[in-house]
């Protein structure tokens, strides 16, 4: 079990982590979802003992990262946001180096990384700097896993990686979870939230919600409408002028609309759009997704 209790951390005048408390169970795949600057990296660095909290306690499987940092560092496999590989060393040399540094051998824990490493093994003589984003990511994951950590701590592992590699990466994480490794991951991509057991939505150093993704979505009680219009820009302006508009924002090709009234129907909205001479395809009530929830949760704050 990992527990954060009232954690605060400031850098000069920036409150990077602001009173964070939460629990992560052993064996869980837990995601911190939030944009750049939300405080995810700072939180991770306090968990892995690289930073000391200004206030509050962290409990990592019964260890205190401040006092017992040596033990903590042994049981964490950490992948920082920037790829931490040596670009001038080959795949094999990178892996060999991290294995030796953590006091183990590639053979000893090969079973853990086999699925991942097999995919890049054909290129093992190639320098890490010449690999594609997806391959670098697989190598970095192999290096983080090589000492059989209890906790895998991945800071924005999918940033800058294409959709196919991202999908593959999450599949790898699912397999690792089945092997009993606790995985804590951060990501700015809302669509990755659904792949975690539980997520924490984070912005400006604060946690806005902690729950399984499905629960976060079901907590969103207001009716949400999707509006497909011909001209997004004009329609946005027009809907904002409307007295009943709670919030309206672009969502892909369509607009998402929230009304101040509780029992409004699609017809009413269509009627308003017509009255404004706006061409529209259709107005429908839909289920919100994590991104809608994030917007709703942070809308009033920022």
């Amino acid at each position: 079990m990992i527990e954060f209790k009232n954690i605060h951390k400031s850098f000069e005048d920036v409150h990077a982590v602001d009173d964070v408390s939460l629990r992560i169970e052993e064996g869980e795949l837990f995601g911190f979802i939030g944009p750049d600057g939300a405080g995810k990296t700072t939180l991770f660095r306090m968990l892995n003992s690289l930073l000391i909290p200004d206030e509050g306690q962290i409990n990592l499987f019964g260890l205190d990262p401040v006092k017992e940092y040596k033990k903590v560092r042994q049981i964490i496999g950490y992948m920082p946001g920037k790829f931490s590989l040596y670009y001038d060393l080959s795949i094999e040399e990178n892996l060999q180096f991290f294995a030796t540094v953590f006091g183990t051998t590639i053979e000893e824990n090969y079973h853990l990384i086999e699925d991942i490493y097999k995919q890049i093994e054909p290129f093992k003589k190639r320098p890490a700097g010449k690999l594609s984003g997806g391959m670098k990511q697989k190598l970095a994951l192999s290096c983080a896993l090589i000492h059989k950590p209890r906790l895998l701590l991945l800071d924005e592992p999918t940033t800058g990686v294409d959709a196919v590699s991202r999908r593959e990466f999450w599949e790898m994480l699912q397999k690792l979870k089945e092997k009993g490794i606790t995985i804590v991951v951060s990501t700015p991509y809302m669509d990755e939230a659904g792949l975690c057991d539980r997520v924490a939505l984070m912005q400006n150093g604060k946690i806005h919600a902690v729950a399984p993704p499905s629960e976060i979505v079901s907590q969103f009680s207001d009716p949400l409408y999707t509006i497909k219009v011909k001209n997004n820009y004009k329609s946005l302006q027009a809907l904002r002028q409307w007295e009943f508009c709670e919030n309206v924002y672009p969502f892909g090709e369509t607009l998402h609309y929230l009304d101040k009234r509780n029992n409004v129907s699609a017809d009413v909205i269509e009627a308003y759009l017509s009255s404004q001479q706006l061409t529209f395809d259709k107005v429908e009530m839909i289920q919100p997704d994590i991104e809608d929830c994030f917007i709703a949760l942070t809308h009033n704050v920022g």
Binding site: R45, I76, G81, S84, F98
Partner: peptide, 10 residues
């Protein structure tokens, strides 16, 4: 960023 990994290594 590799210094971070070295630091948390043994």
């Amino acid at each position: 960023g590799s210094m971070e990994v070295l630091l948390i290594s043994p």
